[in-house]
């Protein structure tokens, strides 16, 4: 049973790490958005406030996929080991 638990816990940690690879996407997207808005502010400095507020809004929306990955990773770290451990204990105990 120790081996099964070890595999479950290790795979939960690995899965959380792999899930957070999704952080690449929002990082590239937000970097692109910020770069473009810097260009826009450079061209038209008087439109700084509206460009900045639109950029923050867009960044927050582009962040969504990264947050999905984050929620999954946190579920894998904090919730899944307990549930799977209980399952394995009940399965092997009976």
């Amino acid at each position: 049973m120790e081996l099964a638990l070890a595999i479950v816990f290790g795979c939960c940690a690995l899965g959380a790490g792999i899930a957070m690879i999704a952080g690449i996407g929002p990082a590239i997207g937000e970097g692109y958005a910020v770069a473009k808005s810097c260009e826009a502010i450079g061209r038209q400095p008087e439109s700084k406030s509206s460009v900045t507020s639109t950029m923050v809004m867009g960044c927050a929306i582009a962040e969504t996929t990264g947050l999905y990955a984050l929620v999954i990773a946190i579920l894998l770290i904090f919730v899944a080991p307990g549930l799977m451990g209980n399952l394995i204990k009940t399965l092997s105990g009976n």
Binding site: E63, T64, V71
Partner: peptide, 16 residues
């Protein structure tokens, strides 16, 4: 779902 996860994920990731 996306509205809930966006807000929750941001605040909770800050706490973590």
């Amino acid at each position: 779902v996306s509205m809930a996860f966006r807000h929750y994920g941001n605040v909770m990731s800050g706490a973590v």
